[in-house]
Amino acid sequence: MVQSVNRYRAPEAVSQQILLSQLIAKQQALVGGESRIANPSNDPKAWLEVANISRFQSDENAWTQNLGRAETRSSQAEASLNTIVSGLIRTRELLLQGNSGTLAPSDPESLALEVEGIASDFRDALNQRDNYGGQLFGSGPPIRVPISDGRTTVASPNMDAVQEDIPISGGATATLDQIMAATAEAIRNGNGADRGDQLTALDGALDRITQLLTRQGVVRSTLEATRDQLDQSKLSLAGRKSELSDANVTEALTRLQTLMTNLQATQAVYGKVSQQTLFDYLR
Rank of each mutant, 00 (worst) to 15 (best):
G133Q: 09
S139E: 15
F137T: 05
G134M: 09
N131F: 05
P141A: 15
S120Q: 13
E114R: 05
L113D: 11
F122S: 00
N127V: 02
D121K: 04
G138Q: 14
A119H: 07
P142E: 14
V115T: 03
Q135M: 02
R129M: 11
S120C: 01
F137L: 13
R129W: 07
L136S: 08
G140M: 05
G140K: 10
D124K: 09
I118R: 01
A119C: 01
G138Y: 04
S120E: 09
V115A: 07
S120L: 10
L136R: 08
G138P: 03
Q135A: 06
S139M: 11
E116D: 12
Y132M: 13
G134Q: 11
N127T: 12
P142H: 12
Q128M: 07
Y132L: 10
G117C: 04
S120Y: 02
L113E: 12
P142F: 11
S120H: 02
Q128V: 05
F122L: 00
A125G: 13
L126Y: 09
G138M: 08
G117A: 14
P141I: 14
Y132E: 15
D124P: 00
Y132A: 15
D121M: 03
D130E: 07
Q135V: 01
Q135K: 04
V115S: 08
Y132R: 10
G117I: 06
E114G: 04
R129G: 07
D124R: 11
L113I: 05
L136V: 00
D121R: 03
G140L: 10
Q128Y: 08
F122G: 00
S139Q: 12
G117K: 12
E114A: 03
P142T: 12
Q128H: 05
Y132D: 15
P142N: 12
G133T: 02
F137H: 07
P141M: 15
G134D: 14
N131Y: 03
N127A: 14
Q135T: 05
S139L: 10
P141C: 11
A119Y: 02
S120F: 06
L113W: 06
P141F: 13
S139G: 14
L136P: 01
R123T: 10
A125L: 07
I118S: 05
D130Q: 06
G134F: 11
A125D: 03
R123L: 12
P142K: 10
L126H: 12
A119D: 01
E114K: 06
Q128L: 08
N127E: 13
D121Q: 13
P142R: 09
A125F: 01
S120I: 04
A125Q: 02
N131K: 04
L113Y: 07
D121A: 09
N127D: 13
I118V: 07
F137M: 11
A119L: 00
G134N: 13
E116F: 05
G138R: 14
N127P: 06
R123V: 06
R129C: 05
P142G: 10
R129H: 12
G134I: 01
G133L: 01
V115Y: 02
Y132C: 07
G117R: 13
E114N: 04
Y132F: 15
E116W: 03
Q135F: 03
E116N: 11
F137D: 05
Q135H: 09
F137R: 08
F137N: 07
A125I: 08
G117P: 04
G133Y: 06
G134E: 15
Y132N: 13
L113N: 13
A125W: 00
